[in-house]
């Protein structure tokens, strides 16, 4: 999968990036705000965007999730306080922070299955599917 990472904490983004590459995916970009995320999404057509709920300069990851969904990019949220349902974000699910490398590898498997309309192959308490 081509993955877009939207996360304003650089070291967390680095961890997700290396986990994605480890799992055989390619990271098309790391963004920390809405403008840069939409720019990368427009250029690279990612198969999945992992979007933190709180972005740089107090921008909302939920608003970004809606914009990405409208652009046809499936979104998984990441948050220390996952919303109970997709609400208006139109996300597929949410990854609970803090997460571990195992959560990340499970997340890519689950996201890939959900996007392809298949049942989730695994489950973890840190991952919520809407």
């Amino acid at each position: 999968m081509k993955v877009l990472i939207v996360e304003d904490e650089a070291l967390v983004a680095l961890q997700i990036e290396s986990a994605a590459e480890e799992a055989g995916h390619s990271v098309v970009g790391v963004a920390d705000n809405i403008a840069s995320a939409m720019e990368i999404a427009g250029q690279s057509k990612p198969d999945l965007a992992l979007v933190d709920v709180m972005l740089a300069r107090d921008e909302s990851g939920l608003s970004l999730a809606v914009m990405l969904a409208e652009a046809g990019v499936p979104v998984f949220l990441a948050s220390g306080n996952c919303p109970a349902d997709s609400a208006r974000s139109r996300a597929l699910g949410c990854l609970h922070k803090p997460f571990r490398d195992e959560d990340l590898s499970a997340l890519f498997l689950i996201a890939e299955a959900v996007i392809n309309g298949q049942p989730a192959p695994t489950s973890r308490s840190a991952i919520q599917i809407y």
């Binding site: 304003d8 650089a10 070291l11 680095l14 790391v30 920390d32």
Partner: peptide
Amino acid sequence: MKIIRALSRQ
């Protein structure tokens, strides 16, 4: 270097 790149971008 990865840490330096990521944090300087931030």
